[in-house]
Design a protein around this nucleic acid. Structure first.
Lengths: 137, 137
DNA sequence: CTTGACCTGTGTCTAAGACACAGGTCTAAG
DNA sequence: CTTAGACCTGTGTCTTAGACACAGGTCAAG
């Protein structure tokens, strides 16, 4: 199986497959012409990787998980502990985005009824530079 | 004013100041010993940059805005149009994070009552690989 | 045999700084 | 004056997860 073939069969891109290959997550044999040749085992591994990415695991996480399972150990405890970490991070980022979204949309509406001003020596754009001050208005 | 001095006075890091300097957003003079020497104008520019970053503008956006205002033009129209774009992006990412957060926390709770399993030839971790299937349960 | 379409691996690029590092500066003690 | 140590400097490299560019290889149709 060639790289594009594998990628398409699982709904991803050749670049993604190549990336995982570079990291050693997939281990294709080298075919005669130097092209990479992927096995059925690579197919299941890639399937796993894509599922895990979809659940918010980082590629580094996945590498760790695959290593664990290659030693014959159950990766389940590691998986549970990693997702706890990732979920906490996601929660933090989520709250940050929530706040940012609020700020941005309040700025947008505030700015709609404000006039344009030319820059001055110590003011680039009064919309931005006065935003925090009049936010409560 | 030296780099750390400027950074601390506005509550940011020397690395950040150096980064903006590399991009040409700040234009320090070179002092005798080769150190960068920042002026009051750099102080106001940095203040502006930090406010804009805080509102979700990218550094590239800010570069554009500064260029506009350096030509003496009002940057307000550009600022309004850019924040509209950024807000849309933020909204998309926000929805994506919302969905991801839901998926992750549902996985976490589902996995708490599932047993560990050793890997098999075509299964790295059954928690991950069966998640989508039994999600509704 | 040649054309063109598609594919390949390798190398570089992204955002926004953080970090490493070898060396410079500055203040206080001796 | 000298030396020690603390802190500072600029430059260069690293990060994520791939996307993209590119020179060259492969393959089927003609």
């Amino acid at each position: 199986m060639k790289v594009t073939e594998l990628a398409k069969s699982l709904g991803t891109t050749a670049d993604t497959v190549r990336y995982y290959t570079r990291l050693g997550l997939l281990k294709p044999a080298k075919s005669v012409n130097g092209y990479k040749s992927y096995s059925n085992k690579d197919v299941s591994r890639l399937k796993f990787i894509l599922s895990a990415r979809n659940l918010g695991f980082s590629v580094a996480d996945i590498k760790q998980i695959l290593n664990e399972s290659e030693d014959g150990k159950s990766a389940c405890p590691l998986v549970r502990s990693l997702i706890k970490e990732r979920l906490e991070e996601t929660e933090k980022q989520f709250q940050a985005m929530l706040a940012l979204r609020g700020k941005m949309s309040s700025a947008l509406s505030q700015w709609e009824e404000m006039e344009d001003k030319a820059p001055t020596a110590n003011m680039v754009c009064h919309l931005i530079e006065n935003f925090e001050k009049i936010k409560k208005a």
